[in-house]
Amino acid sequence: MSEIVLETREIVRDYHIGGGLFRQGRTIHAVKGVSLKLEKGKTLAIVGESGCGKSTLARMITMIDAPTSGELLIDGEKVDIAKKGLTSELRRKVQIVFQNPYGSLNPRQKIGDVLMEPLIINSNIPVSERRERAMQMLKKVGLAPEHFNRYPHMFSGGQRQRIAIARALMLNPRLLVLDEPVSALDLSVQAQVLNLLADLQDEFGLTFVFISHDLSVVRYIADEVMVMYFGEAVEYGTRDEVFSDPKHDYTKTLFAATPRADVESIRARLAKKAA
C-alpha cells in the first residue's frame, strides 16, 4: 500500500466579480467539486481547454488560492490556508512550475539568487551551504556552474524552464505542480525537458500534477489522466483507461482534434484531397 500524497474532496472555487452601481455582481464557478487521489511517485495529468479551470485547480493544490469549499489533504493532513495560513513546512512540500519561463523569472535576479531565494525564505540554512546546494541543483538539471552568476535573459527558453524546475526543487518538495511546463517550448527542447522531469521524478521520488492540453505529451508522461470541462472533471482514470476508451463526448472531441503525424493518416488526407 503506497502512501497518498495528494487528495482533494469535492473541491470548489468560485470567483466573485464585483458589481458596480449599475451592474450586479456575478459569481463564476471555476472549479465545481473535483475529487482526486494521487499516490507517491505517480503523475496525474489534467487536460482541458483554456478556461476550464485546470489552472485554478493547480493554484488550489499549490496553496496559492484557498478553495471556496471542499477539502484539500496533503500527506493525509487537512490543509486550510484560509483559516490557518500557510506554514513554511507546507510550502516546502508543494512547489509549482509555470508555463512561461520568461515571465516567471525576475530579469534583474541572477540565477544563483533565484535558486537560493526559496532557502532564504523557508529555511535557516547558512549561506555557504545554500550556495553549495544551488550549485548541485544546477548540475542536476543539466546546467553548468558557470551559469550561477548569469541573468535570465542570457538563457534560451528550454534553459529557463530548467531553471524554474531547479528553483521548484530547491526545497525538496513532495509534490510538484507543473502548469503547462512544455507548451511554450520547441519539439526537441520539449523532449529534453520531459526527459529531465522523468529523471528527477525517479531520483527524488516526486509526485507530479501535470497540466497540459497536449495529449501526445500526456500519453507519454502520465499515469493517471483527468479531463476537465467547464470546471468539472468529466473523465478520470488511469492513462490506458482514458486513452483506450474515452467515455465523455468532450474527451472524444479532444482526441479527434489532436493532429496525427503517422504515415497512414497523411495518406488518407492526401487521398481525400485528390478526390
Binding site: L187, S188, Q190, A191, L194, A198, S216, R219, Y220, A261
Partner: peptide, 18 residues
C-alpha cells in the same frame, strides 16, 4: 525531429535531437 515526437517514444525516454 520526427523521433522526438512524444507519440514515437520507445520505452521510458524520448530521444532528443542532440
Amino acid at each position: 525531429l520526427l523521433s522526438a515526437l512524444p507519440e514515437n517514444a520507445v520505452g521510458d525516454r524520448l530521444p532528443t535531437v542532440s
